[in-house]
């Protein structure tokens, strides 16, 4: 069973790095949004450093959406999903493996690259570390919530827009606690660990609910 899941994760990681994969693309998109904000707000470093964590989090939410629409759709179109449903593994675990692989190629690089992008919005060392940590704890929630939308829209052509409409309201709690944790690290009334713990909790809830719901949506999807 674990062999099948490892094979699945390895395959999706390989696909993300080959031609047509979206691994690096969401990172570029992330950088793009972070770079756009100063053009809209002006290059005031004080303002930027104050709202820096918010910018990074907003960029992370939008970057997570990029590529999500192909998470199950690509496998649905070419029949790979049929292959996976014939595996002696519950569909829930297949979904879990695919979402983990997706997070490894989108959420994790995003969190790791965020200190670098924090430089662009004049975050100090604490702010950078805190934002990276909150992204590490919070992006799994974004990916799992997004996976539900991806599964629901797997067989809809051009499902990207509706996917965003479906999942963005559900991502609001993650965004709230992500930003508030990142901000509380550089001063504030709330201790850093409280929102961070809630954020980690949200990721765990999203992992359970998201996996079950996405598998239910894929099963009998025809």
């Amino acid at each position: 069973m674990s062999r099948a899941l490892l094979a699945l994760i390895a395959r999706d990681l390989a696909l993300a790095t080959r031609v047509g994969g979206s691994g690096a693309l969401s990172l570029v998109f992330f950088l793009m949004i972070v770079a756009l904000v100063p053009f809209a707000l002006g290059p005031d470093l004080n303002l930027l450093s104050r709202i820096g964590p918010a910018i990074l989090w907003l960029a992370a939410v939008l970057a997570t959406l990029i590529g999500l629409d192909r998470l199950f759709q690509a496998d649905d179109e070419d029949g790979s999903l049929d292959l996976m449903s014939a595996a002696p593994v519950p569909l829930e675990l297949v979904v879990l493996a695919k979402v983990v692989a997706h997070w490894l190629t989108t959420g994790l690089p995003l969190a790791l690259a965020s200190p670098l992008f924090g430089l662009l919005v004049a975050l100090d060392g604490t702010g950078m570390g805190a934002t990276a940590l909150t992204l590490l704890a919070g992006t799994p929630a974004l990916t799992f919530i997004g996976a539900v939308g991806a599964a629901l829209t797997a067989s809809i052509r051009r499902g990207g827009l509706i996917l965003a409409v479906l999942v963005l309201p559900l991502m609001v709690p993650t965004l709230i606690f992500g930003v508030s944790a990142a901000e509380s690290a550089s001063g504030g009334t709330v201790p850093f660990t409280t929102p961070l713990a809630i954020l980690a909790g949200l990721s765990l809830i999203a992992a359970v609910v998201g996996t079950l719901a996405a598998a239910a949506a894929l099963r009998w999807s025809e």
Partner: peptide, 19 residues
């Protein structure tokens, strides 16, 4: 499925918005 996912999320949304 989406309705039920939303139903699980609504209390969380309510709580987080209050916070």
């Amino acid at each position: 499925i989406l309705t039920l996912v939303g139903a699980v999320n609504l209390p969380i949304i309510k709580f987080s918005v209050n916070w």
